[in-house]
């Protein structure tokens, strides 16, 4: 399967659509609009890549996610800042103990999942904000092995959490109550069918019914796997060689959005011959 580069959104610079220092997280909403969190603000781009709006965040964001009601959640250090779809701040959810560093956010059936890289695990809350349980903590390593400092996960339609565990060179599957369901991938050295380098993959997103999109660092690339660990495609185009922890998002049409954290741009790729699922 082939992907081709569709466009590059944003970049490094001081323009309104550009980021000055950092690009941390990206997310897509139901309409296919792109939310990118970096520097100290959130920017929204439409499907064509044009800047729709931007608003400042209280702290430097680590991640961004869009809830079912269209609210924009921005993960920061020690807190989550919640905005409405227009960017009006709604509230700040502070929880110093469980939100050391929120590098990933997810929603499923009214539950809120918060990836905390300081604790190297995922916390699950209900819709009212009540803490329910911790996921990926109950191993002898007391959490995910993430030397890169980012917990990233995606949730598929069945409520299975796919977490990147780069130190172990695999993507692990957890149920909502924290049971390890399985994993895919292993270290294969220079062979691209598995994960290379010292700690890969760094980020993961669900890319359809049976597909996962992961990103790697050194050298940077994105890959499509099926749940069984079969390599479907490699997307390796134009990333800065120094980039790492590239956040990834996939829209309903199978387009892959990858944030380059060094060039501060979002690369959009589109499958040749339509989405696969």
């Amino acid at each position: 399967m082939q992907y081709r580069q569709l466009r590059i959104i944003s970049g490094k610079g001081s323009g309104p659509a550009e980021f000055r220092e950092a690009l941390r997280g990206i997310a897509l909403d139901k309409q296919g609009r792109l939310y990118a969190a970096g520097d100290s603000e959130v920017k929204v781009f439409d499907t064509e890549g044009a800047l729709v709006r931007r608003w400042p965040a209280a702290l430097a964001p680590h991640s961004v996610a869009v809830a079912a009601d269209g609210a924009v959640w921005v993960g920061q250090t020690g807190q989550i800042e919640i905005f409405n779809a227009e960017g009006k701040p709604r509230r700040v959810w502070k929880d110093g103990a469980r939100m050391g560093r929120v590098t990933s956010l997810g929603f499923f059936n009214g539950f809120v999942l918060v990836g905390n890289s300081a604790e190297r695990c995922i916390h699950r809350f209900d819709a009212t904000g009540k803490f329910l349980n911790t996921i990926a903590k109950n191993n002898p390593l007391e959490g995910l092995h993430i030397p890169n400092g980012v917990v990233d996960f995606g949730i598929d339609a069945h409520g299975v959490i796919h977490v990147a565990n780069p130190g172990k060179h695999r993507v692990e599957r957890f149920s909502l109550d924290g049971a390890l369901l399985g994993h895919m991938g292993k270290f294969t050295g220079p062979d691209p069918t598995g994960f290379s380098g010292c700690c890969n993959p760094t980020n993961v997103a669900v890319a359809g019914l049976n597909l996962l999109c992961v990103t790697e660092k050194a050298g940077p690339r994105a890959k499509i796997y099926d749940y069984a660990g079969q390599l479907i495609a490699i997307i390796d185009a134009g990333f800065d060689p120094l980039t790492k922890n590239m956040d990834v998002a996939v829209d309903g049409r199978g387009r892959v959005f990858v944030s380059d954290t060094a060039k501060l741009a979002i690369f959009v790729f589109e499958p040749v011959g339509g989405p696969l699922s």
Partner: peptide
């Protein structure tokens, strides 16, 4: 570099 997430003595156990 931000390396505070590297495993430390207290989280490695054993």
């Amino acid at each position: 570099r931000p390396v505070e997430t590297a495993p430390q003595q207290e989280t490695i156990g054993g």
